[in-house]
Nucleic acid binder design. Sequence first.
DNA 1: GTTAGCACTCGCCACGCCTAAGTGCTAACC
DNA 2: GGTTAGCACTTAGGCGTGGCGAGTGCTAAC
Lengths: 337, 337
Amino acid sequence: MSEPRKLEVLRAIVEDYVHSREPVGSKALVERHHLGVSSATIRNDMAALEDEGLITAPHTSAGRIPTDKGYRLFVDQISAVKPLSPAERRAIQALLEGSDDLDDVLDRTVRLLSQLTNQVAVVQYPHLSRAKVRHIEFVLLAPRKVLAVLIADTGKVEQRVIDAGQELSDEVLSELRTRFLGSLSGTPLNLLPQTLQSVIAGCPPARRGPAQALARGLEALATSSREERMVMAGTANLARSNVDFPLSIGPVLEALEEQVVMLRLLSDMAEDPRGVTVSIGRENPYDGLAEASVVATGYGPDATAKVGVLGPTRMDYPTTMAAVRAVARYLSRILGP
Amino acid sequence: MSEPRKLEVLRAIVEDYVHSREPVGSKALVERHHLGVSSATIRNDMAALEDEGLITAPHTSAGRIPTDKGYRLFVDQISAVKPLSPAERRAIQALLEGSDDLDDVLDRTVRLLSQLTNQVAVVQYPHLSRAKVRHIEFVLLAPRKVLAVLIADTGKVEQRVIDAGQELSDEVLSELRTRFLGSLSGTPLNLLPQTLQSVIAGCPPARRGPAQALARGLEALATSSREERMVMAGTANLARSNVDFPLSIGPVLEALEEQVVMLRLLSDMAEDPRGVTVSIGRENPYDGLAEASVVATGYGPDATAKVGVLGPTRMDYPTTMAAVRAVARYLSRILGP
DNA sequence: GTTAGCACTCGCCACGCCTAAGTGCTAACC
DNA sequence: GGTTAGCACTTAGGCGTGGCGAGTGCTAAC
């Protein structure tokens, strides 16, 4: 029993099953792929694969389907990344080029990716840590309520309402604004906390209170937005493939809606040297996603924010991985300096 | 055959069907509701109701279910708005009070409303027309690219990247900023176009070009955000009630994701004097929502932005309407002056 | 206008049957 | 030893049958 052929058999099973959604038997296998051996031999191989836990039979007299472990082996060692079609490349380029705003870019990206893969696409907002403060604005909404707006040089705008703790006049606020802006302009966001301390220290005692409140607000602004938000598209694709999620489309939707879950999941995915990380079925901790796989990768300057796709474990990994990788690259290029 | 009793029968049918999801027959009806007549009489009434197109029988020997028209009559003339439970009132109050940001408020609102009704909740962003300009900021991202930020006195922040058409220096931009801010501060957003014209007119010829570009950008900023965006929550509830959308949960998700469709739908709903508008099944033009109903109402100062709920035609209208109305009221109060 | 009674219509479910697909095993073969 | 042919065995799923059960419409009496 040759080891290479066993892998070849696993590959064939995965591909056929992904294609037909039906358990694949030994006979169909030798017919569709020219493996050069008879179905009996394949049966032996399949028995071995089953012993190793790579495939399983839903019932005695059905063909085999890959297990999570089988998909894992397939993804890690067998499959080759399928190149995108020129049409797809063009679509990516065209769709992403005419956009200005960051929100806009991300929005187009998820839509594109979900169309490309026929699955649910997810994009995490890029981190701000590398960005620098471009501008700060305080606006007095009510005597004690200040709207703080932070504009980063990446074009990202963050806002938040802050309780100043005491009543402020427009003049005081304006003075504070100048103070903050003077010290903070150009500061990288990850260094913001320290710099804020020095601003407060430089304030006359009378201004300390509100300055501290504002500083806290700004700090929250810079850190809160880090990994907190994401955009999503293509949930309708879940329903189309309701054959894949027999009755469990509900939990999947829940997980997607509870953005925290998805964000955790994305963040936890270790960066794969080959560029795209895959989490298959029960490999991920959330029960609702037991029958789902996530294909994701980082993008942007330090590749910390993630873009990815969620679909049934029975998905076309090579193509999906190719699409995710391609989209991430274009995305990085567009957002890049 | 008494007219009032016929309505009573329709009411009973709607309520039972909503409760049990199963066609309701004449016998079950007299048992569950004390109508004071026999099942034979009810059968006669039901035949009449069917002639009028208010109810229908899925097949010969099944009970009846309401038609869209039947629901319509029920909503318009029969049902009484069910008051919310004290617990629900408390939940609304508690959840909405601890919030600061507009985004935050809307986000909590949809989540709350979807939990309250076990359906998909939708909130349209409030219009800006009544809001006034509080602050304007221009930030130079690249020699020709300007990030315009518009802060309204409602605390809403809008941003957009503008192509200035020619290279600008920080000084020129700063001068323009002062010019714009001087004239625009306090201007209601719906009057923005006219005011912008006067700003441009007041510019020295050398500044006209960029000023015009910026003005166009600001105008787009003020109008674009009007009815364009919405927040949504509770799509997972669609799946839970997959009994209601037999196989058609896909189209519903599509409609929800194509925000344009939902926004059109919401905007098109005429304001009902009783406060809550209902669109039932095929009353709405989009095919994917043929089995869905929307319950919505306006909120905010001029009640032009909408908040609502989408669910199966077979929904508990009285409670849903009550929830929508209550949430809209709290929302108006919080956003109010 | 209401009611009782009755014949009739279907959807649904359970039962049993059969077929097709696929397996595992054994014995022969190279 | 690995490969193959053959065969007995298993089982899901499709299909027709028949028996409820729920519900209706109609008629005749009240």
